[in-house]
Design a protein around this nucleic acid. Structure first.
Length: 571
RNA sequence: GCGCCCGUAGCUCAGUGGAUUAGAGCAACGGACUUCUAAUCCGUAGGCCGAAGGUUCGAGUCCUUCCGGGCGUACCA
């Protein structure tokens, strides 16, 4: 299907250009003030409003008087039906036909890029996310990192950025060394066995200090370049990474670059960083013989202004390896340079930022999210209350399959997966980053209401209408025949979508997109139940509604793709 | 103890540089499928926006204190 549309308004989002025009009009009379329009709480009060309260001190008149004054100063525009003064507000009633027509035309013209401001065209960005301890299968808490990160990647690409996605692989360190030790003597270890191995060795190390010494000895051998150590570490890490990327890949989450911590050690980068820090005079050797970085003056909320970079035996600690890697990322010149981290890493990343500052680099931007909790409290590996992402996915697929069989007698595997994963992703992405997600199976596996499948369902229903219309859309339509309130409300929701995307991008907050898409879907469902499309009495109404539906499909589809939710044609 | 984040309907969550009457979903109750997919829609009920002060003509939104939860607070990553 190809669309050839002429935009009746200038390029971009119609409602935004209406706002610009109105603001221009007002500025001619009150040039000094900041003018901002907002959307009234009730459609009865109009579609756009100017609160005149902030102007009162400037003009030294009452808001109501200012509103009354300005009312006469608004020029004649085809998109404005009437302007009314209510209290201190100047309320604008937009012309329904113009809004619907301009919005639908803009959407069909811009298609997959409707909602994008193009802010990233010609620019390069970098996003690091997931980077989890490779010791086992990710639980839904860890998955939140990958989901948020992946959505940010999608949003940036939507904005036009060339994005490089990074995964920083933790293949050094105590935890991995313990895994290597725990797996010693085994022929091979599968990904699913890792958690058991890890729990077991953890217990043994706690009980036996001698064993812990062996762990550190192993680490030391690795860092000094011992071939056997390197080989056995790499073997375990490969199992971890394969397992994790298989699960995340199943959800459509992919990475461009895997950087290994060990690489920064073996290439001598960590040593070099240490040398450069030494030259700044901020690096100190403490009484235990460890290298610590003095962060005095950075006002960090920690008891002691130090970050420890090495063990006494000279082996590197995570912060040092991460500093080396982070500098590497900075040197790519990509901007924005984003890293997604749990809220437990807030202070830690301030330390990294300080370390980079000492070396003269600007640190990446960190996006933090809060942990996923269970209704009874935290997830605990020891109490066995963690919900593994893979289990969540499997349960969701089972339920989606069951629902499809109930409805159609059979289930399409690909669609069942799309619906299931849509539910999984939406359940986590709909919550604002800084809030804890409360995970309970019942609502997480719900396909009704404010869920991923709700979006997919709307999309599928519209597709069904278009299919029954013969797959062809009318070349144009007379939108003045769309007189129902809900048709106008729906168009306004569609028009709102781009500013939601812009905000979501600016704040790295996928939940804003989730909400915006859900609003459109809700408005559509109301419309759907109230307004027949193919069965409309009038051919002109049919055509106009068909194009309205096609725009809704596009917008919901764009929203879903930003969340990484697969649109389905039927379900 | 100190620092950061969160506290909105029974439950899960929205709420845009303060601004016209605080919104959804789930659960509950009552309705709507011979009509484009009922994974839907419509209606009813449900709120001292954690508490108390403060700033403002105006506060869920800003400030202070307190309470509750999450996360930190050098030798894990």
């Amino acid at each position: 299907m190809r669309y050839q549309w002429r935009l009746s308004s200038e390029r971009g989002v119609p409602v935004e250009s209406y706002k610009r025009i109105i603001i221009e009009d007002i500025k001619q009379h009150v040039p000094s003030a900041e003018i901002a329009l907002e959307v009234p709480p009730d459609p009865k009060l109009g579609d756009l409003a100017l609160p005149c309260f902030p102007l009162a001190p400037v003009l030294r008149k009452s808001p109501a008087a200012i509103a009354a004054d300005l009312k006469g100063k608004i020029g004649q525009h085809d998109f404005i039906d009437k302007v009314e003064v209510v209290g201190g507000y100047l309320n604008f009633y937009l012309n329904r036909t113009t809004v619907i027509r301009d919005t639908v035309n803009a959407i069909l013209a811009e298609g997959q890029s409707y909602g994008s401001s193009g802010s990233g065209r010609g620019k390069r960005a970098l996003v690091e996310h997931t980077s989890i301890n490779p010791n086992a299968s990710p639980h839904v808490g860890r998955a939140r990192n990958a989901l948020i990160g992946d959505s940010i990647v999608r949003m940036l690409r939507f904005e036009g950025y060339d994005v490089e996605v990074h995964y920083f692989v933790n293949d050094v360190g105590k935890q991995i060394a313990m895994l290597v030790l725990g797996a010693e003597g085994r022929e091979s270890v599968t990904f699913d066995e890792l958690l058991g191995v890890y729990v077991d060795i953890n217990r043994r190390v706690e009980e036996d200090p001698e064993l812990e010494k062996k762990v550190f000895a192993l680490l030391s051998r690795l860092e000094s370049g011992d071939e056997d150590a390197i080989k056995s570490f790499r073997q375990i890490v490969d199992v971890c990474i394969d397992g994790q990327t298989r699960i995340l890949g199943e959800l459509g989450i992919r990475y461009d670059v895997f950087k290994y911590e060990s690489d920064y050690v073996s290439r001598g980068v960590t040593g070099e960083i240490l040398g450069r820090l030494q030259a700044t005079g901020k690096l100190e050797k403490d009484t235990d013989g460890r290298f610590v970085l003095n962060l005095e003056g950075y006002d960090l909320p920690s008891r002691a202004p130090y970050v420890v970079l090495t063990r006494a035996d000279g082996t590197s600690l995570y912060p040092l390896r991460d500093i080396a890697y982070t500098i590497d990322k900075v040197l790519t010149g990509r901007n924005p340079n984003i890293v997604v981290l749990g809220e437990d890493q807030k202070l830690y990343f301030q330390q990294v930022r300080a370390a980079l500052d000492i070396l003269g680099y600007a640190a990446p931007v960190s996006v933090h999210y809060s942990f996923v909790l269970l209704p009874d409290g935290k997830m605990s590996t020891r109490q066995g209350t963690v919900v593994l992402l893979e289990d969540f996915m499997k349960e969701a697929v089972a339920k989606a399959t069951e629902e499809m069989e109930k409805r159609h007698g059979e289930a399409d595997e690909a669609i069942a997966k799309a619906v299931a994963y849509g539910a999984v992703k939406y359940a986590i992405l709909k919550v604002a980053n800084e809030r804890n997600v409360t995970f309970d199976w019942e609502s997480a596996l719900s396909f009704e209401g404010d869920t991923g499948p709700y979006l997919q369902y709307c999309h599928a229903r519209i597709n069904s209408i278009i299919r029954r219309a013969g797959g062809e859309l009318p070349a144009g339509a007379d939108f003045s025949v769309l007189t129902e309130d809900i048709e106008f409300e729906l168009a306004k929701e569609l028009a709102q979508f781009p500013s939601a995307v812009s905000q979501a991008v600016a704040e790295c907050s996928p939940h804003i997109v989730a909400n915006a898409a859900a609003r459109v879907a809700r408005a559509f469902s109301t419309f759907y139940n109230q307004c027949p499309v193919l069965n409309a009495d009038d051919e002109r109404v049919r055509d106009a509604r068909l194009l309205l539906c096609a725009s809704v499909k596009q917008v919901i589809g764009n929203g879903m793709s930003l969340l990484g939710i697969d649109p389905v044609e039927s379900m």
